[in-house]
Design a protein around this nucleic acid. Structure first.
Lengths: 250, 250
DNA sequence: TTGCAAAATTGATTTAGGTCAACTAGCATG
DNA sequence: CATGCTAGTTGACCTAAATCAATTTTGCAA
């Protein structure tokens, strides 16, 4: 039987038999550099370039060295849904497959350098790269927790709470890799943010403007500075409106 | 190295070291019966009884023999969020742990008979029960796909689409275990449905009433009959409002 | 530098759905 | 049988955010 810290090979989709994987997960800048050194398969993408563009999954995982990437799915009715933004230090695979998805794509938001890792080397690399020693199961488990958080966000939170949550989340992701956690570049457009958070582009603008007026943030085009993280966190948690936590009985 | 069809022991939360697991997954009535026969640990819960109620995870998985169960989390601010409804033929564990969750609970929606399976027997049982031979990874992968679907629902869909999606989804779950797929009992309250779908109880009522007027369903208290599944599916997919599938460029 | 297209902002208007409130129907209890 | 009690329904009203529309700003390419 397996030890708990081994990497498992990816598993095929139980419906279609094709491999799938989900791991928009942070492994840290150091381990990305390490991977880059071992794998020697560096690639550069320019803004708008596709990292992949597929009707179905895929052969590689990408460790982002610098820059940023958005992933999204195209639904069978033509709608586009952004599933995540990924920044330096993070591992990028493919988000889950479901029947209504026509194609999964990932494209660079700015000039982006990645290390492309073929699937069949993942196991071997797990021996050498500390953060990959977390097995897939653990990584996926984190992904599920993250999605549940996001579901709460989409189902319950209003525009201000969503955007505050988003900024705080970005901030902590930047913090993990020793960039500034309070001043960073939103490489994605307002429209992208709106799509991701389930609100109109105009609302994103208006709420950001409101945050600025209230002294929570400072903005200059796509550069944000969080001026009052505490208060912003409070907004993200939904303080302000007095929520009655009605304990429902089934 | 592991064969692809083995069960893995659950893995501890990478943050807190405590075990967690997520698997609100259908394994089918036949395999539930099989499990029940092998494990011999049957338990009966009455409406409102707790299957578990914990500040942190947990020792068992439950295979539902009959009845239904809701799972939910209590947030640190006291809010209650329903994370799923589970019916006969499904396996029920614990939905993902996240930092803002204070406690995870599951309670019966009606008189419910389950087979309680201790964690440490999962592996052994995987040898004997076909559907458990899917390894955890695959089960979790399905869970992620399901969550992403739900995220789309919560982020993009309006009240009618949500409720239509919900009914269709329930229908297909019932269909899997040879109950009627077009006539079934909503064992959960309107309030529960609203909580789960992110809308007010009153809106649930109103939309159901509208569906009934339009001849999509027939209702009698908690008993629903789907009269026009095709049209209902169309509503669930969001037909009606002409969505411009703007292809955003990052 | 000019010119153009995409992105962002801001205002006006509309609307879906939340909230509050009243009322009804089932169901359980003494 | 009367008496609540909870779940469900329906109506009135209001608000957050979508939509529509007009500018303004910016980035990029000739």
């Amino acid at each position: 039987m397996n030890g708990p810290d081994q990497i498992h090979a990816p598993i095929p989709c139980s419906d279609c038999g094709i491999y799938q994987l989900c791991l928009p997960t942070s492994i840290g800048q150091a381990d990305v550099d390490l991977l880059d050194k071992i794998v020697k398969n560096r690639r550069i993408f320019k803004r708008g370039d596709y990292l992949y563009r597929l009707n179905h999954p895929f052969q590689s995982v990408y460790a982002i060295r610098s820059g940023s990437v958005k992933t999204y799915v195209l639904m069978d009715d033509g709608r586009l849904q952004i599933t995540g933004f990924h920044i330096a230090g993070e591992l990028l695979g493919l988000s889950a497959v479901n029947t209504r998805v026509y194609s999964c794509e990932a494209r660079a938001l700015e000039t982006t350098s990645v290390c492309e890792i073929p699937f069949d080397r993942l196991e071997e690399l797990g021996q050498q790269v500390p953060s990959l020693q977390y097995q897939m199961l653990r990584i996926m488990s984190r992904e599920i927790a993250h999605n549940q958080e996001l579901m709460l966000l989409l189902g319950r939170k209003n525009a201000e709470e969503r955007l505050a949550t988003y900024l705080i989340s970005l901030s902590s992701r930047f913090a993990k890799r020793s960039y500034s956690a309070t001043e960073f570049n939103l490489s994605m457009s307002r429209g992208d943010i709106g799509n991701y958070l389930g609100m109109a582009e105009e609302t994103v603008c208006r709420v950001l403007a409101r945050f600025e007026q209230e002294g929570l943030i400072a903005m200059q085009r796509r550069l944000v500075r969080l001026k009052d993280v505490d208060r912003l966190s409070a907004v993200a948690r939904g303080n302000g409106k007095s929520e009655s936590p009605a304990e429902l009985v089934g």
